[in-house]
């Protein structure tokens, strides 16, 4: 039995490095702040490649699609930004998450 936590975060960072080294455009998204109940704690990572592939999780599935879109824009612009998502009760119900959370996600290009 291997220890579970943190392993996947490490894998996400390694993937980011390897994708960059292989010549892809890469952006890293990090949960920097959460309010209320949110599925992923601050420090959780999602790494995005310029072909739309991604690894990791910043919300357990709720906002990943939007983050990937924003990440592609950040890669092009070369400038980081902070995204803010409120998880409404209705959306939370739809994807099976706890209600009422808000997350701030920092998205930066890997340069």
């Amino acid at each position: 039995m291997a220890p579970m936590p943190d392993q996947s975060e490490m894998e996400v960072l390694v993937a980011g490095r390897d994708w960059k080294a292989a010549g892809y455009g890469v952006a890293l998204a990090t949960v920097v702040k959460t309010w209320g109940s949110s599925p992923r704690p601050a420090g959780s990572h999602l790494v995005v490649r310029d072909d739309g592939s991604f690894l990791g999780s910043v919300s357990g599935g709720c906002v990943e699609g939007a983050v990937v879109e924003e990440a592609l824009g950040v890669m092009k612009a070369g400038v980081p930004k902070v995204l803010e998502f409120g998880i409404t009760h209705e959306e939370a119900w739809a994807v099976g998450l706890a209600c009422g959370g808000t997350v701030h996600i920092f998205v930066e290009p890997l340069q």
Partner: peptide, 14 residues
Amino acid sequence: MKAETLEAILADIG
């Protein structure tokens, strides 16, 4: 993030 910053983090973790 600069690639060398990521490299340094991974080196420290290692």
